[in-house]
């Protein structure tokens, strides 16, 4: 296969990984723990979009035609926006029930990581209970790939996802660098004690981190569900690539997480074509090992 096509496929997966990794890297740098339940936020987001779209379809009589040239109806983007709010609410709820309490008690990082591991198990199996492990789809429409320059091919859905991801990443980057709350978030990430002393409302920052992380995870999960399929394990299977992207980009760096995601996605695409699709899941691990060997602080990270 042509190299431009492999790059394009890698960029598509990579954009989704990057989008998910932004939330992961923000919770990691501001709340200071590796959240093993982050993958489940992607999965819950995808299923919430599915359910809300189903409700909208039922309410409108399921007669909407797909938006030309895409494969889905108006119900999906509307459902996706509502699901982003719901996923953010879910992230806040998990924080209130679990992480916030552990934080309040001053539990060690590793106890919080372990709790996130338990939460991941419960959230994932909860979806398996509600929706069974059978794959689900937003649409059954088939799409024909369009010819692009340099011999590349992509469906309109895929191109839309790339464009949307770029917009979202730009918006998050501007929010972090140009707004008051963005500055407060970066301050807490640098030094929570000092940020608290200068009058920054740490609780508000933590709430914003979960809302942002949950909404972005929902966006990534919904896009992944549209391009591939929706399964209870979809987020868990993405967890290693998400961590690889966050570590590669440097913990706390939003552009780093996005670039890390693209690198992981492109490496996966080359691995699939050169070695075989069955080894895709090991790519994240190999990249983590390489980064830890060569530059543990990542591309954009500060040395610890």
């Amino acid at each position: 296969m042509m190299i431009p096509q492999i790059l394009l496929e890698g960029a598509l997966t990579g954009a989704l990984i990057g989008l998910g990794a932004i939330g992961l890297t923000l919770t990691y740098s501001i709340l200071r723990f590796a959240n093993f339940a982050h993958g489940e936020l992607l999965t819950w987001g995808a299923y919430l979009s599915l359910s809300v779209a189903g409700l909208i379809g039922a309410a409108t009589g399921a007669s909407l035609p797909p938006i030309d040239p895409f494969s889905f109806t108006w119900a999906l983007p509307v459902a996706g926006l509502i699901a982003m709010l719901l996923t953010a609410a879910l992230a806040l709820a998990v924080d209130a029930a679990l992480f916030g309490r552990l934080r309040g008690r001053g539990a060690s990082t590793i106890i919080v990581v372990m709790a996130s591991f338990g939460a991941s198990m419960a959230l994932r199996s909860g979806l398996e209970f509600l929706y069974t492990s059978k794959p689900a789809y937003y649409t059954t429409e088939l799409q024909i790939a369009m010819r692009l320059p340099a011999g590349m091919r992509a469906t309109p859905d895929q191109l839309l996802m790339l464009g949307l991801t770029a917009l979202v990443v730009l918006a998050v980057h501007l929010m972090l660098t140009r707004t008051g709350i963005g500055r407060a978030m970066r301050a807490v990430s640098e030094n929570p004690a000092l940020a608290g002393l200068t009058g920054i409302d740490t609780r508000k920052v933590i709430r914003v981190v979960w809302i942002l992380g949950g909404a972005l995870a929902c966006a990534a999960g919904t896009m992944s569900g549209l391009l591939v399929q929706i399964r209870p394990y979809m987020g868990f299977d993405l967890l290693l690539p998400l961590f690889a992207a966050a570590i590669l980009g440097g913990i706390g760096s939003v552009p780093g997480a996005m670039l890390g995601g693209l690198i992981v996605g492109i490496c996966e695409a080359f691995a699939v074509h050169l070695i075989g699709a069955e080894w895709r899941a090991a790519v994240g691990f190999v990249l983590i090992i390489l980064v830890l060997l060569a530059r543990p602080s990542g591309l954009f990270g500060r040395a610890a």
Partner: peptide, 27 residues
């Protein structure tokens, strides 16, 4: 490889070990 780094890098790496061992066993 990981013990000199921050504590949760070990967690992430060991998670990767289990995914990769599982994959190797399968393939």
């Amino acid at each position: 490889l990981t013990i000199r780094l921050r504590a949760d890098y070990l967690a992430i790496t060991t998670f990767g070990v289990s995914v990769t061992v599982q994959l190797a066993a399968l393939n």
